[in-house]
């Protein structure tokens, strides 16, 4: 601001005629009005769309009563749903951390036919509606699905069972770690890895001693994104799992059923748990992001 005024003052006597100075003052006044108007609109917008819903959930939770919500959450089926979500997220995080890292290395560092296709494919889950993901897997693995005979042969039940939930979660979470690491690998370049090679390091040593330490914040970021996305997945898990209480119900489908059954304590309680978790993850994420930028 100060700099701004200064540069204007320094130039004014020589280049700007008096009439233009009046125009300048008018412009400044308009800018003040525009600033106030834009700020007002933006604050109102964020308040209505973003802040108010958060506050509403919190106040509703207190209306229902924290004790009642907690009691509802301690019911066996609620605990089961919560545990199911955590297990799914833990597996998705592990699988994605490994395969996301490998996939990113393959996409950025390897040269092979179909590489661009692979990269596009890995991005695709971001563009597809969860319900349609569910439908696609249903058509692949459901009653009349292509691969159903294969899994039937081995006696593996996928639909409305744990494997179905897992596949849905893996699908929706696939891009998060991978994309993050692709981005970091492209930033970093190959010269450190080359340096390690000339110093006598094997590919294995290069990965553990150079590549992995360099992508660690990207990986952490990706893992947190995966965790948050897996915990929150609803549509695909609902279609493939069927939300059978005590069998394939997850935290999100539990909320859905609780609303249908008008058990508001359980619904709000579980929603609050998920909302709180995502806020915690978000804060950790922004910390990871800052660390990544700093390093």
């Amino acid at each position: 601001m100060l700099e701004h005024a200064h540069s204007r003052a320094a130039v004014a006597p020589t280049t700007i005629p008096a009439s233009a100075l009046h125009a300048d003052a008018r412009t400044a006044a308009w800018e003040g009005i525009a600033r106030a108007a834009i700020s007002g609109v933006v604050l109102l917008y964020l308040a209505t769309v973003l802040v108010a819903p958060l506050v509403a959930l919190a106040s509703e939770l207190t209306r229902v009563g924290l004790r009642a919500a907690l009691n509802a959450l301690l019911q066996p089926n609620a605990l089961f749903a919560l545990r199911m979500s955590l297990v799914l997220a833990a597996i998705a995080v592990t699988v994605n951390a490994v395969l996301g890292t490998l996939g990113a290395l393959v996409i950025v560092r390897h040269r092979f036919i179909g590489r661009a296709w692979l990269s596009a494919l890995a991005d695709l889950p971001l563009a597809i509606s969860p319900v349609m993901i569910g439908l696609s897997f249903l058509l692949l693995l459901g009653r009349e699905g292509w691969l159903t005979p294969l899994f039937d042969h081995f006696g593996i039940k996928i639909m409305f069972a744990f494997p179905g939930l897992l596949i849905a979660t893996l699908f929706v979470a696939l891009p998060y770690t991978l994309r993050e690491i692709v981005y970091v690998l492209e930033e970093i370049g190959t010269s450190e890895e080359e340096a390690a090679a000339t110093l006598g390091a094997s590919p294995w040593q290069i990965f553990w001693r150079v590549t992995l330490p360099n992508i660690r914040f990207g990986l952490a970021y990706g893992v947190l994104m995966t965790l948050s996305r897996s915990l929150g997945e609803f549509g695909a898990v609902l279609v493939l799992g069927g939300s059978i209480s005590g069998q394939t119900q997850t935290a999100t489908t539990f909320i859905h059923d609780a609303i249908e059954e008008r058990q508001s304590a359980g619904a709000y309680g579980m929603a609050a748990v998920l909302a709180f978790t995502s806020v915690a993850l978000l804060l950790t994420l922004s910390w990871a992001k800052r660390r990544r930028q700093a390093s």
């Binding site: 964020l46 973003l50 802040v51 819903p53 958060l54 509403a56 959930l57 948050s228 915990l231 929150g232 997945e233 609803f234 935290a251 999100t252 909320i255 859905h256 609303i259 619904a267 709000y268 929603a271 998920l274 909302a275 995502s278 806020v279 993850l281 978000l282 804060l283 994420l285 922004s286």
Partner: peptide, 17 residues
């Protein structure tokens, strides 16, 4: 900081809110 929240919060919870 809140701007990113919709990315993290489960969509079902959004609906509920």
């Amino acid at each position: 900081a809140l701007i990113d929240l919709p990315l993290a919060i489960p969509t079902l919870v959004t609906g509920l809110m």
